[in-house]
């Protein structure tokens, strides 16, 4: 029983003993026990090995991190390339191979996607702004421009009234000429009919096809 209690005590002190962290009296006590107890000695060997393995693994890890740091510094150039190409990638203006490597880069570094999202957000707010600005134009220039192109008076109503008045006037005159039994020559009558059809063609704003049928 006393043996077992000592073993328990020694086991709990083993880690400190390996690191030499016990006071000299206790250090000696553990040392002496290990010399006489094969059970504790075995535990001690196992623990010592485990600790040294852990320490080595930790050292490796530190070295790896340092290497990775070096590697990451190298990647800043890669990131810069990514960043300068991002705008053209967004506009679908990159050659296929470069576009593929952009995609690969974003898979490797998911954070890089955020840059792309920000660019998309910029695109979205610019376009919402565009809609706002478009709404501020309340005038309609279409008629004014059309008349300017035609080289005519932009006063639309005046134009139309004038057109209709002359159209009606000429038709009435010609119709009277044709239908009335005024003794005019055959050639004059034919000329009048022709002129009548022509008037319809020139002045009618819509039925150009109908008018051209009449002309034949």
């Amino acid at each position: 029983m006393t043996q077992s209690i000592t073993c328990k005590k020694v086991t709990s002190l083993l880690a400190l003993y390996i690191d030499n962290k016990l006071d000299p009296r206790m250090q000696l006590f553990v040392k002496q026990h290990l010399e006489i107890c094969p059970y504790c000695h075995k535990k001690y060997i196992m623990l010592k090995q485990l600790i040294s393995e852990l320490r080595n693994a930790y050292k490796d890890m530190i070295q790896d991190t340092a290497a990775e740091e070096k590697h990451r510094q190298f990647n800043i150039k890669e990131y810069e390339k990514f960043h300068t190409n991002l705008s053209a990638y967004f506009d679908n203006e990159l050659p296929l191979n470069e576009s593929v490597s952009m995609k690969k880069y974003m898979i490797k570094f998911p954070n890089a996607r955020k840059d792309l999202e920000e660019m998309y957000n910029l695109h979205k707010i610019i376009n919402s702004s565009l809609l706002c600005v478009k709404k501020t134009l309340n005038e309609d220039y279409s008629k004014t421009i059309c008349y300017r192109v035609l080289g005519k008076n932009p006063d639309f109503k005046k134009q139309i009234t004038l057109k209709i008045a002359s159209f009606v006037g000429i038709i009435i005159m010609l119709a009277t000429l044709i239908t009335a039994n005024i003794p005019i020559g055959k050639t004059v009558k034919e000329k009048s009919i022709k002129l009548f059809k022509k008037t319809i063609y020139v002045h009618s704003p819509i039925n150009h096809e109908l008018a051209s049928d009449l002309m034949q």
């Binding site: 600005v133 134009l137 220039y141």
Partner: peptide, 22 residues
Amino acid sequence: DYHALEELIKREQKNVYASFYY
């Protein structure tokens, strides 16, 4: 076809206006 031209201007004018605005 001036009706077509008129409609084309109607559709484009806001866009042109916005272009100059920016």
